[in-house]
Design a protein around this nucleic acid. Structure first.
Length: 893
RNA sequence: GGGCGCAUAGCUCAGUGGUAGAGCACUCGCCUUACAAGCGAGGGGUCACUGGUUCGAACCCAGUUGCGCCCA
């Protein structure tokens, strides 16, 4: 018996536990693995949150899942590393600081580049990284000693190193291309930084040329006609065959432009003729290249018309109606459709309509890198969960455009290229000195934020240096992230990881071995969360009100692989209730002298209920292990929730009560009762100990508090996982599955439930003691359980004046009860009638099947036998119920 | 326009050939000495529609309708 009994209050208060526990974990160094530890490594790098960000519910989901994986591996004996850090988030951060400056009426140009960047660093130190503090509230078991930032010295070195290598390998080049341009942020964007929406616009058909040499083109961007340098038609289109090769007049400009034939023109769309503006449309740029057309730039970087003439100086959206009006005046507008819904690209950072712009930018030549990235998944070196998502991944990597990596910003990794006075171009590695002499200038642009993010799995471990961390923790084990950044981040880490770490070989160069994708967090109606909709959830608010564990459980419980997670306040309250249930189960165990960590008595000394709960625990443990391997978090939570609540609390604890409180059983001397109580205290302690360990990865705080109270151990964080453990690590003794005990307890549950139903239907209060006889129980497998059954059902031994007024039959036992007030005949009739209907429906269903000769002949024997049994059982029930109904006193009629 | 996915209880979702499940919500009865953030009992679904395969279909196939996502 435990000497020091811990007194727990009746309710769990997360606020009193969480921060205390978290800081103790960090101080103890639990989250800091030693590379020299011979155990296998398990590594997850955090998807680095933007330095501008704060913890939102999506992070909370991602972090909960990662933390659960890492905590389980740690308990399994792996040297588990969850590496934290942040992303400098180029545009987003620059925008924040520029907005701050704007409040003082300043722009970044007023400060100049150096001072501005200094100012951003200052901001980063002061208010950036709020999210890292918030992660502590959630309980993230990250190794703070290894925290990294995408702009720190080590990562800058990694960026410059890989840039130089790619450059030297011809995989980075500079070229004049049409890129996505944000006229507000004044920078180039990559394809995936552009969000497409269907916007209302107009489709205008304009007549170019005159007389026989006229052709009608349709456009949603009338103003760009100022930069047209051709009209294109399909080579096989008979309508325009006579015009191909000739020149027609471009209205408003007086320029003559050729009609060219290009197979990419869709003859079915519109008139089958398209205007070609090589400087302002990516498709037209390609047409222009194929036909050697000139590019006429008509707009500046802010979207203002520069083409000489009446429209010069107008914004692109002002120019549109102005040009249209001018064309209309010349009677060149053939038709106008308005509104016309069409896809329009927007800057993913600020929402401004993106302008395709011809400019000189740096690109990564992705073809060979993307091929390798695709192959790593194709040949199974990297596995994507759920597998269906791999299709999207392949679609992307197998058809990727070259990646525009230069950004016209100041905040970011500056491109390490110098231009000499004689037109020299020199790319420098991190240890190279800039070229000496006058006239050398460094490229003004910085790199896309995602360029440094792509290096995250190895740059954070010390690459390009050959560090112990890199050797130990790379490749990382699992990459956990939302499917929404599969392209932004996952694909690019694959490309750069395989390239940079190539010397490690095909297996050793992958950035991660598994990719576990989750979805978005949605509201209780499955709607996307958004500030405008007003349905967002602040995880810190939930943590304050319901606890970190409840918040985590709510998220994990909804997380099916790749699936979105719907949450609501009612559900987090339910999760909070679950934590409280655990709390009280532990409280009960402690009040009743549960002992943990002792060798279990032999099977013969254990009660059936004890063997049953241990058996179920063995099964649940195996199940949870299997589900973890598949990232089935929702199922893990579900299995543990029902085991803990339904089986452990509702049945096992109730079954243990009479034993623990030494209610004399009907058989055996008192000494036996005490021995039985001791055995049950052992099992109770052991089961609770293991259950808390199993739940710890998802519910770190409440399990820590309770586990320490129950076991007296140091911390469940480092306690051994009850299931599978790492190779070479000593696990807990394996529990046996006991099918006999399970069958007995299942039978007991059915009998008890049936009698409870009778009691409830009869209006007997739950606490009311009812004298009863359990006739025939001696001949069933429940023979030894009479005392516990009586305890659960509050049935007392029949006294001298026992008069059975009602009876319930189940599991071969006839329970005769003396309901003091006599039987409620109508209630009983109703109950029996309902049961009779169920039994008859059963008969019908079984008979229908068995009557079909093809079923009997072709269905597996096992299924046929099952239906025969069902039929027989139902027939017996019908007979029994019919008799019982007939025996009831006739109603008042 | 191309591709992918989804449609099961009031809501959110599990359920890949053999008697339809969970959480929350709902109804009834209970402060039964761990827990009212609780206990016990209960109601509720022609599994979107149409056809096919099969002894047997929520599940496999085809089509229809509606919704969502990704890409252009």
């Amino acid at each position: 018996m435990t000497s020091e009994r811990v007194q727990l209050p009746a309710q769990y208060s997360p606020g009193e536990v969480e921060s205390r526990r978290y800081e103790a974990w960090v101080a103890a160094g639990y989250f800091t693995p030693d590379p020299a530890n011979p155990a296998p490594a398990f590594t997850i790098v955090i998807p680095p949150p933007n330095v501008t960000g704060s913890l939102h519910i999506g992070h909370a989901l991602d972090h909960t899942l990662i933390d659960a994986l890492v905590r389980r591996r740690r308990m399994q004996g792996y040297k588990a590393l969850w590496l934290p850090g942040m992303d400098h988030a180029g545009i987003a951060t620059q925008n924040v600081v520029e907005r701050e400056l704007a409040r003082d009426g300043l722009s970044r140009h007023d400060l100049g580049r150096e001072a501005f960047v200094e100012r951003v660093w200052q901001w980063k130190t002061e208010s950036g990284g709020r999210i890292l503090g918030q992660m502590r509230r959630l309980g993230d078991s990250v190794d703070w000693t290894r925290e990294r930032f995408t702009m720190d010295a080590g990562l800058s070195r990694a960026v410059q190193t890989i840039f130089k290598r790619l450059y030297d390998d011809g995989l980075i080049y500079r070229a004049q291309r049409i890129i996505n341009w944000c006229p507000r942020c004044l920078t180039a964007l990559s394809d995936i930084e552009v969000d497409h929406t269907d916007d209302e616009g107009e489709l205008v058909s304009i007549r170019y040329g005159d007389g026989d040499d006229q052709i009608v083109v349709a456009t949603t961007r009338v103003e760009t006609m100022l930069g047209d340098t051709a009209v294109a038609v399909h080579p096989d289109d008979p309508r325009y065959a006579h015009l191909v090769g000739r020149e027609i007049e471009l209205p408003l400009t007086g320029r003559q432009i050729p009609v060219v034939a290009d197979p990419h023109v869709d003859p079915e769309f519109g008139t089958g003729a398209v205007k070609v503006t090589p400087a302002h449309d990516p498709n037209d740029f390609e047409i222009g290249r194929r036909h050697g057309l000139p590019s006429v730039v008509i707009m500046d970087e802010r979207g203002v018309i520069t083409a000489p003439g009446p429209f010069q100086g107008l914004d692109r959206f002002e120019a549109r109606p102005a040009v249209l009006a001018a064309l209309r005046a010349e009677r060149r507008v053939v038709s106008e459709r308005r509104p016309y819904l069409h896809a329009v690209g927007h800057c993913s950072r600020c929402g401004t309509t993106v302008e395709p712009r011809l400019s000189l930018q740096w690109f990564v030549k992705v073809a060979p890198l993307a091929k390798a990235a695709g192959d790593a998944v194709r040949d199974g070196r990297v596995r994507i969960y759920p597998q269906e998502m791999a299709a999207r991944y392949f679609d992307w990597v197998d058809d990727m455009h070259d990646w525009c990596i230069s950004r016209q910003l100041w905040w970011g990794h500056r491109i390490p290229v110098w231009y000499g006075p004689g037109g020299q171009v020199v790319c420098l590695g991190p240890d190279d000195e800039p070229p000496a002499g006058d006239g050398w200038e460094r490229d003004a642009d910085v790199l896309d934020t995602w360029f440094s993010s792509a290096l995250w799995p190895f740059s954070t471990l010390g690459w390009p240096e050959d560090t112990a961390d890199l050797r130990t923790f790379y490749p990382t084990s699992v990459l956990v992230t939302g499917y929404d950044i599969l392209f932004f981040w996952v694909a690019r880490m694959m490309m750069f990881g395989l390239y940079a770490m190539a010397p490690a070989g095909p297996e050793g160069s992958v950035p991660f071995r598994q990719v576990a994708l989750h979805g978005l967090v949605r509201d209780q109606f499955g709607k996307k969360m958004s500030k405008t909709r007003g349905n967002t959830v602040d995880p810190l608010d939930w943590i304050d009100r319901f606890g970190a564990d409840a918040t985590r459980f709510t998220l994990a419980r909804g997380a099916t692989p790749g699936g979105d997670v719907a949450v609501s306040e009612e559900w987090v309250a339910g999760a909070r209730n679950f934590c409280n249930k655990l709390w009280n189960a532990a409280r009960f165990a402690l009040l009743n002298g549960a002992v943990a960590g002792r060798p279990l008595p032999s099977d013969s000394e254990l009660a059936t209920a004890d063997r049953w709960i241990l058996s179920r625990l063995a099964e649940v443990t195996a199940e949870v292990d299997e589900l973890y391997e598949q990232f089935e978090f929702a199922k893990i939570c579900d299995v543990l929730y029902h085991f803990a609540w339904d089986e452990f609390c509702d049945w096992y604890l109730e079954l243990a009560k009479p034993v623990l409180t030494n209610v004399p059983s009907s058989t055996g001397p008192a000494g036996q009762d005490e021995a039985a109580a001791q055995a049950t205290r052992c099992v109770l302690g052991e089961a609770l100990d293991r259950l808390l360990r199993l739940l710890h990865p998802v519910l770190p705080f409440v399990t820590e508090e309770l586990w320490i109270a129950v076991t007296g151990g140091e911390s469940v964080v480092m306690a051994r996982w009850p299931g599978e453990v790492a190779e070479g690590v000593c696990g807990l003794p394996r529990l046996a599955v006991d099918t006999g005990a399970e069958a007995e307890i299942t039978s007991l549950m059915r009998l008890v439930t049936e009698v409870r139903r009778f009691r409830s239907d009869q209006g007997l209060r739950p606490g009311q003691q009812v004298p009863a006889v359990l006739a025939g129980i001696g001949e069933t497998r429940l023979a030894r359980h009479e005392a516990r059954i009586r305890s659960l059902l509050r049935l007392t031994e029949p006294g001298d004046r026992f008069v059975p007024t009602g009876s319930v039959q189940a599991e071969g036992v006839v329970v005769e009860l003396d309901t003091a007030a006599g039987l409620d005949v109508e209630a009983e009739r109703k109950r029996l009638t309902k049961d009779l209907a169920t039994a008859r429906a059963d008969i019908e269903a079984a008979e229908r099947k068995l009557a079909s000769s093809s079923f009997v002949e072709r269905a597996p024997a096992q299924i046929v036998a099952k239906n025969r049994e069902r039929l027989a059982a139902a027939q017996g029930e019908v007979r029994r119920l019919t008799e019982r109904l007939a025996a009831l006193p006739s109603g008042p009629s």
